[in-house]
Write a protein that binds this DNA or RNA. Structure first.
Lengths: 200, 200
DNA sequence: TCGAAATGTTACTGACCGGTAACTCACAGG
DNA sequence: CCTGTGAGTTACCGGTCAGTAACATTTCGA
């Protein structure tokens, strides 16, 4: 038994079970969807047991929400890293975002974990929904702030254009993936929009 | 018993069970998601039984695929109706599409049924996936044809811009719904893009 | 009116779901 | 050395899942 363990020498100290379970849950939920993944398979993937899962998380729904919070945290870390090289240059930051989103859409496995999750979480009161909605509101607001900074004629319109383009790029990754997908045109479209909505 | 029946007098002739089941399945899948809806609840909603469902459809997966085919058929019917009033005026047709998509995103219940379904259908060989992918390919191609007709400088880029905007509008309906959602800006953005990508 | 087709009814299978109880074990720090 | 704690183990709960069998009933066209 235990033949499947790949890396454990006899008494090697492993990471806490909670972390292993959390990481496995995040991965499986993203890969296969939330309803498609049972708590038992999460525990198995983490080389732990269902009991340990329930000692660390109140319910599957709470575990889902926790995973989404971590996706949110990772996302804004990623966002900050994209903007960092172009401090105080809002136009360059917007373009860097478009290029980064375009690249991420080509590399990622299944689009945006937030959007994927919200499709499955139809229950209005699910603890994960608030995390997702807040994430989207923030994205829209930060895009709007950037569009104001570059002096766009109509910042709300331009920001919404960027917002829709990004969301469309992620969701289309699930159907039209690959080198010739529409997501790769993000930077070119961004360029055109900025030129059209500022004084060129 | 039978108190819940709303419209049947004693021997009133009802629509065939297959149609009732099909319609119920389409509605429930769209409303609550595919995995969240069991075959028994579909039969109940159709005022039929699970056995009748399985006499008319080989499996739940086949029923799902059938529903998606009908969504596809309805979509292109809708699309044709939007274009019809502007025959041989590709620019007006594109603008009519943007306005129609914008309106539909505000009115619809849960965004695009195709995108919602593809999130849940992670299995590569699911009979519904082909329907969805083909639908998306067709949308992209028809947008490209229209963008060629209006003499866009770079029709591929413009068509992909429209494609991403539409997809983004539908998916954002699940999180930022309501009057002030980003989908309402579709026509304005379309106008700007067309102006920028044609000779104005 | 007759008979076949469509549909309903009931019961069932085996598998899986989220979640819990009760017990054991290993190891840490005091 | 003892004890508290995190973790593993096993078995179980009630419920639901997709799908099927066997039989009764209704419907409707010929």
């Amino acid at each position: 038994m235990c033949a499947a363990k790949t890396e454990s020498a006899a008494s090697e100290s492993r990471r806490p079970a909670r972390d292993r379970i959390f990481e496995a849950a995040k991965d499986l939920f993203y890969r296969y969807g939330i309803r498609a993944v049972g708590v038992e398979s999460i525990a198995a993937e983490a080389d732990a047991t269902k009991m340990t899962l329930y000692r660390n998380f109140n319910s599957k729904d709470e575990l889902v929400a926790e995973c989404l919070r971590d996706h949110d945290r990772e996302f804004w870390e990623w966002w900050a890293n994209v903007l960092a090289p172009h401090a105080d240059e809002p136009k360059a930051q917007l373009m860097a975002l478009m290029e980064a989103f375009s690249r991420d859409c080509e590399e990622c496995l299944r689009g945006c974990p937030m959007n994927n999750a919200v499709v499955e979480l139809h229950e209005e009161g699910h603890p994960g929904r608030a995390v997702i909605v807040e994430n989207k509101i923030q994205i829209r607001e930060r895009l709007l702030a950037l569009c104001r900074e570059i002096g766009a004629r109509d910042p709300e319109i331009l920001a919404d254009a960027f917002y829709l383009l990004i969301e469309g790029a992620y969701i289309s990754q699930l159907t039209l993936k690959g080198e010739d997908g529409p997501a790769k045109t993000l930077p070119r479209i961004g360029e055109t929009l900025i030129a059209a909505e500022t004084g060129k």
